[in-house]
Design a protein around this nucleic acid. Structure first.
Length: 291
DNA sequence: AGATCGCCCTGCTTGC
DNA sequence: TGCAAGCAGGGCGATC
């Protein structure tokens, strides 16, 4: 559920409440939450302790906490976090009761009485420690493409890269090595705004049409970001445990049977890749099937 | 080598 | 009432 806007909301919360603080103690309560840290839970905790956290970074749905020495020099490492479907990074008072699905607790060496908690019901997400590349990116996510809110995203190269994939548009939007940060919700929203059917072959999209779609991706993500992201239930919250409001503004996702906000035609849901695609059968005409 | 598929996981909802 | 199936679904490794 957390896609780029939700992850960015979390990143901003961490920048405010966790940056500049020094790790005192790490408690891994569920080994699966650190499974991507191949050296194991104990190593994960030991290597974090005593390090200071710098301003968190983000690419697509990944975020990371760069680690520095106390003097401020980079250690060349960062704690990488992915929220998966149900992960939360919460800044909680130390005496707050443990959440049912608390997986990792990080305590700090200061007199502020808050700690960082990774809570994850479905354990698709996790934390891990990695070396960073010269541009500060954790090395294991070097294959993740820049996201559409990244100032260095290459708008000129995108249509070309898109056409080169012989696939359909929604698959391409969800391909994190082509464009990152887009998940099922914002893909459906952007396609609705662009009046494009999810099975439209990428090869049939002109450069202007692709540029327009990219603009819609950015618009819907910025709109969601402005209201704290999308929350359907308590599974997605910011670091203070608060929900976002963008679910009220969704035009496609979850609106099966409800009238299209443009033309009034009942919206449809179709099974797609073991999940769902929501679309307006009038505004988003299916492509002609080629023999 | 790029596209596709199955699997990981828990809790809520639905249907018999 | 109780149980099982269905659904939510991102990312990765295996496979074609």
């Amino acid at each position: 559920m957390p896609e780029l806007p939700e992850v960015e909301v979390v990143r901003r919360g961490l920048a405010r409440w966790v940056a500049e603080r020094t790790v005192a103690e790490v408690e891994v309560r569920h080994p699966r939450a650190v499974r991507r840290h191949l050296a194991g839970a104990e190593d994960f905790g030991r290597r974090l302790e005593g390090e200071r956290i710098a301003v968190p970074g983000r690419r697509g749905k990944y975020l990371w906490l760069p680690l520095t020495e106390l003097a401020g020099d980079s250690t060349g490492t960062a704690v990488l976090a992915h929220l998966g479907m149900s992960g939360q990074l919460l800044v909680q008072p130390e005496d707050a009761p443990d959440e049912k699905h608390l997986r990792v607790r990080i305590r700090f060496a200061d007199s502020t009485d808050t700690e960082l908690r990774f809570v994850d019901q479905r354990t698709f997400g996790g934390l891990s420690l990695h070396d960073t590349t010269p541009d500060g990116l954790p090395d294991v996510i070097a294959h993740i493409a820049r996201d559409p809110l990244d100032p260095l995203f290459d708008d000129e190269a995108f249509p070309t890269a898109l056409r080169r994939r012989r696939t359909t548009i929604k698959r391409a939007l969800l391909d994190q090595s082509l464009i990152s940060g887009v998940g099922n919700i914002y893909a459906d929203e952007a396609l609705w705004r662009a009046r494009l059917h999810y099975e439209r072959p990428t090869a049939t999209l002109t450069r202007p049409r692709t540029a327009e779609l990219l603009g819609h991706v950015r618009d819907v993500m910025n709109a969601a970001l402005a209201v704290g992201g999308t929350s359907f239930d308590s599974l997605y919250v910011n670091v203070n445990g608060e929900s976002g409001y963008f679910d009220r503004s969704l035009d496609a996702y979850g609106r099966e049977g409800l009238p299209c906000r443009r033309c009034g035609t009942p919206m449809r849901r179709r099974p797609w890749m073991n999940r769902s695609s929501y679309y307006c059968p009038h505004c988003q005409r299916p492509p002609r099937t080629t023999p």
